[in-house]
């Protein structure tokens, strides 16, 4: 009875929310209206001036890495922090009294000719395409984030097929481990900040690329600096992807100190069904 009441209340509230949202969007300007407020205030300047001011044909790249570079810096910091957070959460849980046998993770080597061949064919193109996406981000869809994720996925592909330690060669594994991935991720974030500070050193504001002494044409200078920023994002994102995969899929180093005051929790052993 209580459960049925709760379900009815939930349906009522959610239905009310849905109807409210529908009523709310009715007052918005129609979809595709070029004179809607969202399309007439800030963005016309981005559309009309991006080519002249930043040299980028892709306006999304221009806005992302140049006009809103500070925003992108914060975002890079957020994903770095997420990778760090996932690592810390999982690393801290290891080493104490192990009451759960975690699932095997994806750390078993699979000796499959099919997978091995597929990875050999796929991975080089994936990695190369990631770099292409990065450097072509000015003139086509793409940029640091997409390229970074693709590069990270290429590393993950190799890591899945070849990666884990084999019994005969305990230390061998392909791809960056957690430590190297963290180095990559933090190097990317620090490079981004360094570009911002370099602009300050040459008399501009933070992340004001135009003042960097890279050439005569300010648009070209900003184009180069935008590429630098995108490369920094690329490195940071691919490092973070590798960190997330290592911690979530494979598991971090199985050594560590138990957390102080860790409560010996009362969970019974899990029986696998």
């Amino acid at each position: 009875m209580k459960a049925r009441l709760r379900a009815a209340a939930a349906a009522l509230i959610l239905g009310g929310l849905f109807v409210g949202l529908l009523a709310g969007v009715r007052d918005l300007p129609p979809i595709g209206d070029p004179s809607s407020p969202a399309s007439t205030h800030v963005s016309p300047r981005f559309i009309e001036e991006a080519r002249r001011e930043t040299g980028a044909l892709n306006m999304v790249t221009a806005v992302l890495a140049d006009y809103r570079g500070y925003d992108t810096l914060g975002e890079t910091a957020v994903i770095f922090a997420a990778g760090l957070g996932a690592f810390v959460i999982l690393a801290a849980s290891i080493g104490g009294p192990r009451r759960e046998t975690p699932g095997p993770g994806l750390s078993h080597r699979v000796d499959s000719l099919l997978l091995d061949t597929a990875a050999r064919v796929l991975a080089p193109f994936l990695l190369l395409f990631a770099v292409y996406v990065l450097v072509h981000g000015h003139v086509s869809p793409g940029g640091g984030f997409q390229g970074g994720v693709l590069f990270g996925l290429g590393l993950v592909t190799l890591r899945l097929v070849w990666g884990p330690p084999r019994p005969d060669r305990a230390a061998s594994r392909f791809g960056p481990g957690v430590r190297a991935s963290f180095l990559l991720a933090s190097a990317g974030l620090l490079a981004y900040i360094a570009i911002g500070i370099a602009a300050m050193a040459f008399g501009g504001a933070f992340l004001d690329y135009g003042v960097l002494p890279l050439g005569q044409d300010p648009a070209h200078v900003r184009e180069l600096a935008t590429l630098g920023v995108e490369a920094a994002v690329f490195v940071a994102v691919s490092g973070t992807v590798a960190v997330l995969f290592e911690t979530i899929a494979v598991g971090v180093a199985e050594t560590g100190r138990p957390l102080p005051n860790e409560d010996p929790a009362p969970v019974e052993a899990r029986e696998e069904g």
Binding site: G32, P34, S39, I47, E48, R51, L57, N58, M59, V63
Partner: peptide
Amino acid sequence: ATKDGGRVPILEPGETEAIAADFMNPL
């Protein structure tokens, strides 16, 4: 972000002038 008759917010290589109403809103 859509506009009726709008293009993908990427210019052609030779293009230098852009009119705001012709492109999807990139923001």
